[in-house]
Structure formats: C-alpha cells, structure tokens
C-alpha cells in the first residue's frame, strides 16, 4: 500500500474500520506493477499475482531479466492475529507461497506472494521456467501440503515417505514430548 494520504483525518477520533473505509474509497484500484497488484514491505517490492496470473507473470519477468528464482517457501496464516499487508483487491487466504526473484543486471529483487485457499491447496509449478524450484517446491509440499501441478517429482523431501501430516502447518503440533529427568527405566 502506498504510504499515504489521510492528511485531513484525525486518526485518534476514528475507529479503525472507518479509516479503512476511507482508504478504500480513496483507493478503489490497487497500484499495479507488471500488471498485478503491488505492495511494499520495509522497502522491498512485493507483487501479488493471482494463481492464474502467476506462471505468466514469472515468465514475463524472466524475459525482463529476473533470471534466478532464489527462493520459494510457504506460509500458513492460520491464526495470524495482525493485519496482513495486502493491497486492495487481494483476498487473504490461509496459505501463501512466497517466491523470491533476482535480477542480476539491475541487482534488484522482487517478491511474489500468491494466495492459496485451504480448500484447494495447489499451484502451478515453476519448474519449466526455473528448475531451481524443484527442491523448494517439494519442501513446500512436504511441509504445507500444497501441491504443485506439473512438478516432475511431487514427493516428500525432508520427511520419510510414509509420514502423515504436514509439519509446518499451524494446526500441526510441534510434537514436544515431556522431558523426564529422573526415574526413567531403560536397560543400558
């Protein structure tokens, strides 16, 4: 969201929702970059393509010089208490896939955040464009259960094949076991 506007509004007198209402009225259209909504986070540019725009966007960015897909990871926003930094028009979903692209010529970076609904956790793979996502996409599948369509080897990578559940989901327990300091009876 652009750093903005509300010069005439005294925030302390307004409830939070109404500030948002005003903002939405003033900004009906989100800012666009490369044809998709864009936001800024701590000075870093973040693009928010929809699932349908995702591959086409990465493809055109690759033509523009973003040759390397540096990073791909998942986030599970279940139970996230704070305000999600999303531009207007982008509906928050439970999962997000976050992709980092690097342009060596401009020495610039772009980050993509794709919303993935809980009911249908899947996304098209970037493998045909960036083979570097092979391991990261498998990791996201392993840890979050988000499937990548068209990935040549969509299997677990860190956990054993027969493992049940996706550990980095927020509703997956940490798996802590109580520590017993004495009185344990093990034959040694």
């Amino acid at each position: 969201m652009s750093d903005a506007e509300t010069p005439s509004i005294d925030e302390s007198e307004l409830a939070e929702e109404s500030v948002e209402d005003v903002l939405e009225e003033e900004l009906p259209q989100p800012e666009l970059l490369h044809g998709v909504p864009v936001s800024e986070s701590r000075g870093q540019v973040v693009l928010h393509p929809s699932r349908d725009e995702y591959v086409a966007l990465v493809s055109s960015l690759r033509e523009l010089g973003y040759w390397m897909c540096v990073d791909l990871c998942g986030v599970d926003y279940l139970g996230y208490g704070a305000q999600r930094n999303l531009p207007a028009g982008v509906a928050p979903e439970r999962f997000e896939v976050v992709v980092g692209l690097l342009n060596h010529t401009d020495r610039s970076r772009l980050r993509l955040r794709v919303q993935i609904p809980e009911s249908d956790p899947q996304l098209a793979t970037l493998f045909p464009l960036h083979p570097s996502v092979e391991n990261p996409e498998r990791e996201v599948f392993d840890m979050f259960g988000i499937r990548f369509d068209g990935h040549p080897d969509m299997s677990r990578i860190l956990m054993p094949d027969e493992w049940i559940g996706h550990p980095l989901r927020k509703d997956y327990e940490l798996g802590r076991i109580p520590v017993q300091f004495k009185g344990a009876s093990t034959a040694r």
Partner: peptide
C-alpha cells in the same frame, strides 16, 4: 543424548531409545 533444544516432531528424543548408550 536427549534431543537437546529441539524437542519437536522431527528428532528422536535421545538416541538411547534406539541403541544402548554407554
């Protein structure tokens, strides 16, 4: 010996549950 600071789903909490430790 005990899982250490990583008391979580991924680690065996103490190798003495698998092999006898001297």
């Amino acid at each position: 010996s005990s899982g250490g600071m990583f008391n979580n789903y991924a680690l065996v909490q103490g190798v003495d549950t698998i092999v006898p430790v001297d």
